[in-house]
Design a protein around this nucleic acid. Sequence first.
DNA 1: TTGATATATGTCATAATATAACATATCAAC
DNA 2: GTTGATATGTTATATTATGACATATATCAA
Lengths: 165, 165
Amino acid sequence: MPPNGDPIGFAHHDHESCVTDAVASVEARCITAGLQFTPVRKRVLQILLEEHRALGAYEILDRLRDEGLGSQPPVAYRALDFLTKHGFVHKIERLNAFIACAHPHEVHTPAFLICRDCNSVAEAETDLTQGRLAQIASATGFIIERAILEAEGLCPNCISKSETV
Amino acid sequence: MPPNGDPIGFAHHDHESCVTDAVASVEARCITAGLQFTPVRKRVLQILLEEHRALGAYEILDRLRDEGLGSQPPVAYRALDFLTKHGFVHKIERLNAFIACAHPHEVHTPAFLICRDCNSVAEAETDLTQGRLAQIASATGFIIERAILEAEGLCPNCISKSETV
DNA sequence: TTGATATATGTCATAATATAACATATCAAC
DNA sequence: GTTGATATGTTATATTATGACATATATCAA
């Protein structure tokens, strides 16, 4: 079945190839970097890419269990730790959930737009070295190593929905 | 005992009056807004102001229990819900912890600088309507209602500590 | 190729964080 | 003072996450 219940065969096929491409790209980067892209890690990434939304660790674990790839929480959390550590997956702190990186090709600070109505999550790229946060930090003498930017609100789809009501 | 184990009486006294003032200010705002600033809510705010750092809900609950103000998780979570809803306290998503607002006088989007070494948290004010996140959102047609900005790294104190080693 | 070391997995147990549900109490406004 | 809304007390449980330790697999040097 297509993800999101999308019945359109064409879109489905596109998405499949986009998943395949993304996995291949991560696989290549792991080889280059000397990282072990093990079956569980690969499958977790595939699941996140296929769903194309933020999933909780236990949702992912359920999938792994169905497929005989691991049944205990640490299996999922370890794979997620690996994938987030290397930037292939991001954690959405607000949702305690994980989403495949939408911009895996470049180093960036991700910023997320989270719809409170349909729970969809869009990823934008930002540059940490510019912007007010960097100004504040340097004025304070604080060294930023990592930043969490998550905006919550209404996505375009849900705005139109609520307007027509 | 002074918070943070600070043995200096003068500093301690200053901090006490700053806590008192902040509580009084929140109390006044609750009266104006017709909100009930109940004993539990007041005490939770006091605890957070006294500690002057991010506390987990269960740390707060332990304090409440010691004082006979409530022994079950919902007591703490409800007070924290009230305080965060009205902007008197902020939740640090990265730490699953809560901290008293350092800028209670004005409406703002808080940004936090979290030290990964000593766990101290500094609060800065930002303006959501400016900046790149707002640009991205308006370009996408997304309406931001709330934003989470949390930077993780090293605070000035911990930087000097690590340099002298 | 083998042995040594590091890395990854399987599993059990439990910790830490958070909420649902419902009875009781208190407040606020009429 | 009655009533409807709001807040609290309490039990139970849901959700998210990690510690610990045994086993397995990968990596690499000798």
